[in-house]
């Protein structure tokens, strides 16, 4: 018996639901509402805990082919790029209220483009810059002027 990916996911979810289940019983209730704020979450969490436990069980009982001679190799994945992309998005969101929407967006679009496909020639750099600027400008004008959404101003730049 060995545990697989599903089993681990099930265990994590089971742990989360049990912790929150305990928490749901500790919620204060209001005098005027006959059932407390923990009533419904407890139902959901109990359901989730049961299903997660079943998933763990199902995974443990699953017969696994024991190291078949190099099963067709999984297609290669560029997980490094995914991590980098998440980091760049995270950075953008963090900078948004500091630099203001316009600056942060131009930087973000430029950086992410470069990270996904590094420009080789001056022309490609120009295209990259133009797309970054265009996205920043167009989205700013459309949202601020036409959709009446005041986008974040930068705390550092006041812009």
């Amino acid at each position: 018996m060995s545990i697989g990916r599903d089993g681990i996911a099930g265990l994590v979810l089971l742990a989360i639901s049990l912790v929150l289940l305990v928490k749901s019983f500790q919620l204060p209730s209001l005098a005027i509402v006959p059932v407390g704020p923990g009533f419904y979450p407890a139902i959901v969490l109990a359901f989730m805990a049961a299903a997660s436990a079943l998933l763990v069980l199902q995974d443990l009982l699953k017969r696994r082919p024991t190291a078949v001679a190099d099963a067709p190799a999984a297609p290669p994945r560029n997980y490094r790029l995914v991590v980098i992309a998440f980091a760049i998005v995270g950075g953008y969101i963090a900078l948004l209220p500091l630099l203001g929407f316009r600056l942060a967006t131009v930087l973000f679009v430029g950086t992410l483009q470069a990270a996904l496909g590094w420009p080789q020639t001056a022309r490609q750099w120009l295209v990259l810059a133009a797309i970054a600027l265009g996205t920043g400008l167009v989205s700013y004008v459309v949202f601020e002027r036409y959709l009446m959404v005041l986008l974040p101003r930068g705390a550092w730049t006041g812009f």
């Binding site: 131009v106 420009p119 001056a122 400008l137």
Partner: peptide, 16 residues
């Protein structure tokens, strides 16, 4: 090339 690209980016940022 990189420098030129960066310079272009910065100058336009300034204009914004």
């Amino acid at each position: 090339v990189k420098m030129a690209g960066a310079a272009a980016l910065i100058s336009v940022l300034g204009a914004l």
